[in-house]
Design a binder for these strands. Structure first.
Lengths: 323, 323
DNA sequence: AACTTCGATGTAAACGGTTACATATTATGG
DNA sequence: CCATAATATGTAACCGTTTACATCGAAGTT
């Protein structure tokens, strides 16, 4: 029994002869290793739990790639679940993952300042928030400065001469990233002396399918915007599709900026101007931080890292053509 | 101990008074349920393993949604891993999932006729192949008729008067779906009396980023195609992006048909003509079949279900404008 | 040859639930 | 009020691995 365990985990510790004996026995009773029993015994799953808001936005897929690569490099698995932008689901899934004894957690949640932060800190399982901009709090984080991202995106539009700049925002309730990007949008407006027209800000649920109504609300006002800043690329692409349906041309009639720089954004027509996040690197860093905390044990203090973003100008934005 | 177990699994079986006593004790020693121990003891994880080829193509996300919904409806979790279109990874991941004692498996693999089928059949864990077109074999399957899908897509182009129809195919080695769609493409060509020009068929790895070279190869021939059938919507969108880079207009210069009808396809410009797969339903059916087999035990026979697809005509295809 | 040392192998407890079965408690009927 | 049935609770074995520790055997030392 013990020798079999040794055989499996460090074959060099058992004599060649015994090794052979074991190999045969294994063949004989076509034995299959029981990972669950191992976990039960060691209390280590070699698994990192990942909670993402949705599987349909490929930013999360891209960061997952970085996460996955780094994890496998260290012999860890990734257990991914999606919460569908539902904060109740987030808590439920975190509990599920903790019950399943994941060694660490990486999560993108609607509100990293909410009760979930305490839950995580109490659980004693290393965790890091991904994508959010945090500078404090009991659980670590890695992201970009979403407020500055929003500021930069809006500034780009203002630089092009736009004055009626709308924001097509993902619902703040389900994403603090969207809220921070909105903060940056506001700051830019006030820096430029532009008025913040509440009619030019609409919040919609995440997902392409909700863009229609949002764009309609924006464009059917008395004084419609000449530029739209969308919370993410998916919504920007959705918005462009809707604008086209309304007979408007991007960027001639309306400029559009997105956020994330999803691969798709450089293939759509027109190619999307956007804020690039270093998502692959973010994913990598997140697992590094988890493994780091795992190494340190209890006495590790939360860290908050903020990576650089970058404005990528493509075809969906243009100078305001004054009528 | 036993009462605690009862308390957790069927509270109605313990007296209110005892229930209270247990609740307090749980509070006291802030007990956390250990799912791994339960699994170890019961040999049931209430989990279905899911192997997908990539996380960046949203078809898989969409089918996963159906899968997830049906699974949770029956109290099952989904454990998703992606193989990145690598057949070695597929085998490795299947072994991993089996070691983790998943109760059933749903998988989309490069070749459902390959050795993995035997492995699965031998393992004794219920499994179903998703997306592939199978009519026999030891493991169940649910998909559409990919050959007919390819035929229908190509026929649509032929009906529009196109004679030089290219196929931008995902590498056959990594996807039998692509191969079947190609078979349909060939059948259409021969039915119409069109010659199958090998220069008009290129295989590329999956992913937007590989479309550039594929389209270049196609368009830089002496007699370039007037229509392109792509293995999936992602590649179709990639192709449209590349065609635009070459100064060609879709559909005026070149018509493009995709496959899958991913949500994004109705938002890009021009909106993509494609073959719709009932992906949500496919996901649901797959877990139903797994749970069904789980119910029957050993004596369940493999089933192969083929659902209907549908040609969705949008803006990316047009009649051949004869020069 | 006896003693020490060291590596290889065997033994048994432990991990935390579940569950069959034994026992205790409560309800029911005569 | 007792016998009996029904229901609630307690007991202990079990799942398959790891791991600390015991034991064994071979090689090296005196």
């Amino acid at each position: 029994m013990a020798s079999v365990s040794r055989f499996i985990n460090s074959p060099e510790k058992v004599r060649a002869e015994t090794r052979e004996r074991i190999r045969l026995a294994i063949q004989e009773c076509n034995y299959r290793f029981n990972f669950v029993a191992k976990v039960f015994s060691t209390q280590r799953t070699q698994t990192i739990g990942l909670v993402i808001p949705t599987i349909t936005n490929t930013v999360f897929a891209d960061s997952t790639r970085g996460l996955q690569d780094e994890a496998t490099r260290h012999g860890y698995q990734v257990l991914m679940v999606n919460a569908d932008y539902d904060s109740a689901a987030e808590s439920r899934l975190v509990r599920h993952l903790l019950e399943r004894q994941v060694d660490g957690l990486v999560l993108t949640v609607s509100d990293p300042h909410g009760p979930i932060a305490r839950e995580l800190a109490d659980a004693g399982t290393p965790a890091v928030f991904l994508f959010s901009t945090l500078s404090e709090g009991p659980v670590s984080s890695v992201g970009i400065d979403n407020e500055r991202g929003g500021f930069d995106a809006t500034t780009h539009l203002a630089d092009l001469g736009h004055e009626r700049i709308a924001m097509l925002a993902g619902s703040f309730a389900t994403s603090d990233r969207s809220r921070h990007r909105y903060d940056g949008y506001c700051r830019c407006l006030s820096t430029r002396g532009l008025t913040l027209d509440p009619q030019l800000v609409v919040q919609i649920p995440y997902g392409l399918e909700y863009c229609r109504e949002g764009v309609l609300r924006l464009m059917q006002t008395a004084n419609p915007p000449t530029a739209i800043f969308a919370s993410n690329d998916l919504m920007a692409i959705g918005a462009m599709g809707e604008l086209r349906s309304l007979g408007l041309s991007v960027p001639r009639d309306v400029s559009v900026v997105g956020f994330d720089d999803v691969l798709m954004s450089s293939y759509v027509a027109p190619r999307l101007t956007t804020i690039r996040q270093p998502v692959y690197e973010m994913g990598r860093r997140a697992v590094q931080m988890v493994l780091d905390a795992l190494g340190r044990g209890e006495q590790s203090v939360p860290r908050h890292v903020i990576l650089n973003h970058e404005l990528v100008v493509r075809e969906s934005t243009a100078s305001l053509h004054r009528a």
